[in-house]
Amino acid sequence: MGRAGEQGRLTGEDLAAGLDLANERLDALTDGVNSVNEAYKVLGLTTRAEAAKQAEAYTQAYGIIVKDGEATAGQLIDGFQKYAKAAIAANGDVVSSQLKAEAAQRGLTVAVDETGRVTFKSMADTETANTRVTRSIHNIRTAYDGISSSAGGAGNAMVRAANEASSAYDKLQQKIKSVKEAQELKNADETLRNLRQYGTEEAPVLGNQFGTRLGVENFLKSQGLSEESAIEEARKLYAKQGTSSGALNFGELQGYQDGQVLTNSDLSKFKTASMYLAEIAEKARQNDRQRDNYEVARTATAQITTQEYNRFDSQPSSSKTINVNFQLGGATASMSMPESQEASLNALLQQLQDSKAIAGY
């Protein structure tokens, strides 16, 4: 080899190959792994330089069978794949744009995965897969739109439900507020009524002076009624209430129901127990007076007698004396008056008769 080199007949490649061979033999004679090339071979790997040589050889071989024109389509594809793998390995596992173009001419796509494996796929299969993917995407999009529409409808329904729930909650809160205000007003009315009726904020227990029928009768007597009249008026009140004993409900006697919210007008007309019974007593006294006047008008009589005085044979003369008896209750009063006051007596009797008519007797 040395002589050939001196003569200038060895190329650079021949020289490199000779050096590699010498190194291989040297490595073989030396125990263990003594070089990078030997390390690659031990691991079954190819060095970058060897890959480049192999790629060049595969490129030349592939070019020859293409130019020959006798290879089948399947042989051309197999040859291209081997040539492409060698070229990719020599290029550091990178697919060049030129190689992609050559693959496209063969109806193939070429790629390197994460593990460094070179894969080839038919462009027709890829197009079909892309079509399927596109169709799937379209279907997914359609489904998504449907879901979005449904979700939108459901969302709108949820929003409406939420708004309705919020509105119902607001109405409930307003009703609760109104009830509280009404209860507070009721309590205030009841307190005011108790103050007016009993002089305290709370109504006394049923042991008060109006808690029994006897207590009511005694109060009516204290207002000037006779015992007979007090008993009668108490009887009327208990009959109106529908009971025969116990405490009187002065609110119901005045036309108000238990629990009724009193207006300002109601409060102005509402009477305490003592006021209510005092008015009952006053009306009873008025009725008694009218009844007495009626008795006077009914029993008053005028007795007119004619007495003759100084009878003369030629022309008799006469005069009248008027005797009147008045009865008032169990008492009787008598009086006499001359004839000249007859007109006044008649006027008095007429006034008494008018009073009787006004009183309804």
Rank of each mutant, 00 (worst) to 15 (best):
A343Y: 07
Q327G: 10
Q254G: 10
Y256N: 05
Y58C: 09
E339K: 09
Q315Y: 13
S334V: 03
E202I: 05
L253E: 02
A162K: 15
L45I: 01
G69Q: 03
D288W: 04
F80K: 03
G8C: 04
L172K: 10
T243Q: 07
Y256R: 02
T299A: 12
A151T: 06
I358R: 07
K269H: 10
R289I: 12
L225F: 01
G5L: 12
E342L: 12
D113T: 02
D27Q: 03
E227I: 01
T134V: 05
E190Q: 12
E164A: 11
E50G: 08
Q307A: 11
A157D: 10
D68C: 08
T59F: 10
T142A: 09
E181N: 13
S178P: 10
N163I: 04
L15G: 06
G8K: 03
K271Y: 07
A230C: 02
A86L: 03
Q209L: 02
K41N: 14
D20T: 06
N156C: 03
V33L: 03
I88G: 00
R213L: 02
R298N: 15
E184I: 07
R9C: 12
A61M: 13
V112T: 04
K67A: 13
K53I: 03
S222F: 05
R3A: 15
Y256Q: 04
S244Q: 08
Y238T: 00
V36H: 10
N34C: 06
L76F: 00
K82P: 03
D14P: 05
A143Y: 11
R298I: 03
L195S: 15
A89T: 14
Y198T: 00
Q353G: 07
V118K: 04
Y198M: 00
E24C: 08
K180Q: 11
L15V: 03
T11D: 06
I176N: 15
S268K: 11
T119H: 13
Y144R: 15
M123E: 10
G146A: 12
N139R: 09
N218G: 11
A129I: 02
L267F: 07
G107Q: 05
S268R: 15
R311V: 06
E233Q: 08
E50S: 05
L248T: 02
E342N: 12
N208P: 00
S122C: 02
G116T: 08
G107T: 02
D31I: 09
E201P: 11
N37F: 06
N23H: 15
G207C: 01
D113V: 01
Q286G: 14
E190D: 07
Y238E: 05
T321D: 15
S35I: 00
A39K: 05
